[in-house]
């Protein structure tokens, strides 16, 4: 639905300008340009779920505490509940729907199924988007709290556990998620890489 818009007409000649009830926003969502008129209070999350009907992105807490709403914004993972859509005019968003479809799964989606990296499925889109972002961060050499040598960021299960800790899973598929993401990392980097970060190696999942 479209929220009500402020009456059109001449602005008052003096005093504060009335705040318009809506603002125009253009986002590129999963490769498609979408222009919306939005209440400036609408989070990026609710824009996706309620205005674009992309309900794959989940609302678990609406406070940036659970990670279920994780999407990729210009390729980097963000909590879509903690940011307003109007702050991202002109930016590109990739949601779970943009990673793959049941007939054309992203390698991580396929690995999650094979490793049972989920149970109820509610945190799963966030875990997946976060995993895509995480592999890319490791590949770009971005260190984490558990990185031993800041100049030599290497993939490890502990790095994954640290970096994915913002994505809660109450069913606790954690060990299976780590197995799934580790397998995809290994297949994308080859055993010969010995875990060393390869810039850009994990970016092929971010379909724009």
């Amino acid at each position: 639905m479209t929220p009500p818009t402020a009456p059109q007409g001449a602005a008052p000649s003096e005093g504060p300008q009335p705040v318009p009830a809506t603002l125009p926003v253009t986002l590129t969502v999963n490769g498609q340009e979408r222009t919306l008129e939005l209440d400036p209070r609408v989070s990026l999350l609710d824009t996706l779920r309620e205005h674009l009907h992309l309900t794959g992105t989940k609302k678990g807490c609406d406070h940036g505490q659970c990670g279920a709403c994780t999407v990729l914004l210009d390729g980097q993972r963000v909590l879509s509940c903690l940011t307003l859509a109007v702050m991202h005019d002109g930016q590109a968003v990739t949601t779970i729907e943009g990673l793959g479809t049941p007939d054309d799964l992203h390698p991580l989606q396929d690995a999650f199924i094979r490793h049972d990296g989920y149970q109820c499925g509610y945190c799963t889109p966030g875990q997946l988007c976060s995993s895509v972002g995480t592999l890319d961060e490791i590949a770009r050499g971005v260190p984490s709290h558990v990185t031993a040598d800041l100049d030599d960021v290497r993939f490890s299960a502990d790095e994954l556990r640290e970096r994915l800790s913002g994505n809660l899973c109450r069913c606790a598929a954690y060990p299976n998620i780590i197995a799934a993401v580790s397998e995809v990392h290994a297949s994308q980097n080859g055993a010969s890489q010995n875990g060393t970060a390869q810039p850009g190696a994990a970016q092929n999942g971010v379909g724009q």
């Binding site: 779970i96 989606q109 499925g121």
Partner: peptide
């Protein structure tokens, strides 16, 4: 593996609010 898995990992499985 779960038969509804492809729906869950692609965000296509509808939960109550959706």
């Amino acid at each position: 593996t779960r038969i509804e898995g492809p729906l869950k990992v692609t965000g296509q499985a509808p939960y109550a609010y959706e």
